[in-house]
Design a protein around this nucleic acid. Structure first.
Length: 456
RNA sequence: GUGAUUGUAGCUCAGCUGGUUAGAGCGCCAGAUUGUGGCUCUGGAGGCCGAGGGUUCGAAUCCCUUCAAUCACCCCA
């Protein structure tokens, strides 16, 4: 016998969980559609070469590879080391995110797609990460991107999309925004543009650790004192009143052209958003927001829950040249992603899911008199035609057991058609929520049920 | 890849410095109730104490190894 188990970091979903997840997906999907995004889907697997080198060195290690079928032994013997072996034996891999497959899609379909292309995609991705809280090896991403447009209106709209979704989910979040060009300017003012990755990853840890630790890390990486001093002042900016922040950052970065551009972009976005403030999702400029992914070049953003301790619930940003990797330069884009698994976990812990997240069985016919089975099945079918979710209990067991079944499944109405009722052309209807039982004429069944179901 | 913690019934957990036959609550099954759920009462089933080895007269308990889960770091949604 094999002990049943799941691969690390994967999960089964019970009916109740699936309903809640579908509610989440549906809410997000509806909002995507409301903003005019169009759905696409891409395969679970991509050619390994499509994915390799797109997520940094760490990312490559976290890609799930698919072993080639067939006779692999001769090939395997040619390999000189593990790395070469893995690349020889695996031509395909599971997708790591939705953005790179989307970039491939755009390049392959460049003559069909209409630019600016607004697409959304809701599919699972896989990462060979070590699982922990809010982190799984198989999880869904919900991405919305607009490619083929430089306009900052896209950024504004995507933030409003975030605001719409989180208000519909009744989750209070903060959307932090920043601009990659501030970080670029900061690195250059520190004396070396190549320090930018070091500085950004260090700054990214600020909300987890202290300013001192960030400085220690940077010192360790060999940044000189004057650079550390500048970075310290830069970090202090985010504690200042929101109104003067943009002016202050510009002065601190000595009116560096990149910083000036960033100020222009950010103030445009902020200005536009002022007209439609959201009670659920505030927007704040945070100069220390970094975001790991290398391909971002403009405005970047990240969503955090204000109510639960959890990693980011989503993020995104502008990238100038994503499709360039696949031979189509000059297609800029901006996109956001919803971390539904984490949103689910937060909603669950805050009990923010609506009481009913989908259609469960509304009516159960008990199995009573076998002489009436044919009629019962017919009546059940008629109720379904009326849109009433209906079950017939299949086994001839005690009523006690059948009622307990209805109770456990949360079925509100139970119908009983025995010979006693049928003789008078009636059916016994019991509302399990109230415990009240009534008799209903068979020819008025549908209307009565609909009325009864409307009662809360 | 690094580190920490935890593995006992379907679930949540007790089980003292090693000492008879390993317990509780919830859940499950049956009955009280052969045409009526929830509440109550009565009874019952269910355990290689994660796995392997060691110490000991004796191990759920101590030691080693291993596996798994969880959490943190790295990185990320």
């Amino acid at each position: 016998m094999i002990k049943p188990a799941l691969p690390k970091g994967t999960r089964d979903f019970a009916p109740d969980a699936v309903r809640k997840r579908q509610y989440l997906f549906q809410t997000i999907r509806t909002c995507f559609e409301l903003f005019g995004f169009e759905p696409i889907e891409t395969p679970a697997m991509e050619n390994l070469s499509t994915l390799l080198g797109k997520y940094g060195e760490e990312g490559d290690k976290l890609i799930f590879r698919i072993l080639n079928n067939g006779n692999i032994l001769p090939l395997a013997q040619q390999a000189k080391d593990n790395r070469e072996l893995a690349n020889l034996l695996c031509e395909k891999a599971l997708r790591y995110d939705l953005t790179i497959p989307f970039a491939r899609y755009v390049v392959m379909n460049q003559h069909q797609v209409v630019f600016p292309f607004r697409r959304y995609q809701i599919q699972p991705v896989w990462r060979a990460d070590r699982p922990q809280k809010g982190r799984y090896r198989e999880f869904f991403q919900c991405d919305a991107d607009i490619v083929g447009s430089h306009s900052l209106l896209n950024e504004v709209e995507l933030i409003r999309l975030y605001q719409l979704v989180f208000s519909r989910l009744s989750l209070r979040v903060s959307i932090r925004i920043n601009h990659r060009k501030f970080l670029q300017a900061l690195a250059e003012c520190c004396g070396n543009p190549s320090w930018m990755p070091v500085i950004t990853t260090a700054l990214d840890k600020l909300d987890k650790t202290s300013m001192q630790q960030v400085e220690a890390e940077l010192q360790e990486k060999g940044l000189p004192e004057h650079a550390l001093h500048l970075i310290r002042e830069y970090m202090d900016l985010s504690t200042q009143p929101a109104d003067n922040r943009l002016q202050s950052v510009l002065e601190l970065l000595k009116h560096h052209p990149a910083a000036a551009e960033a100020v222009k972009d950010v103030s445009f976005v902020i200005e536009q958003l002022k007209n439609t403030p959201s009670a659920w999702a505030s927007v704040d400029v945070d100069f220390t927001l970094a975001r790991g992914l290398d391909y971002y070049t403009g405005l970047i953003l990240e969503v955090k829950s204000l109510e639960a301790e959890m990693g980011s619930l989503g993020g995104g940003g502008r990238y100038d040249n994503l499709t360039g990797l696949f031979g189509l330069p000059g297609v800029p884009g901006v996109g956001i992603s919803f971390g539904v698994e984490r949103i689910y976990d937060v909603m669950e812990s805050l009990q923010r899911f609506p009481a009913s997240t989908g259609m469960a069985t509304q009516v159960l016919w008990l199995r009573m008199d076998d002489a009436l089975l044919t009629q019962v099945l017919q009546y059940a079918m008629e109720l379904r035609q009326e849109g009433i979710a209906t079950e017939v209990y299949p086994d001839a067991v005690k009523m006690d057991k059948q009622l307990k079944y209805a109770d456990k499944k949360g079925i509100p109405l139970v119908l009983m058609l025995g010979s006693r009722e049928y003789a008078r052309q009636m059916v016994a209807m019991k509302d399990l929520r109230s415990g009240v039982q009534t008799e209903v004429p068979l020819d008025r069944l549908k209307e009565t049920i609909q009325l009864q179901l409307a009662v809360r």
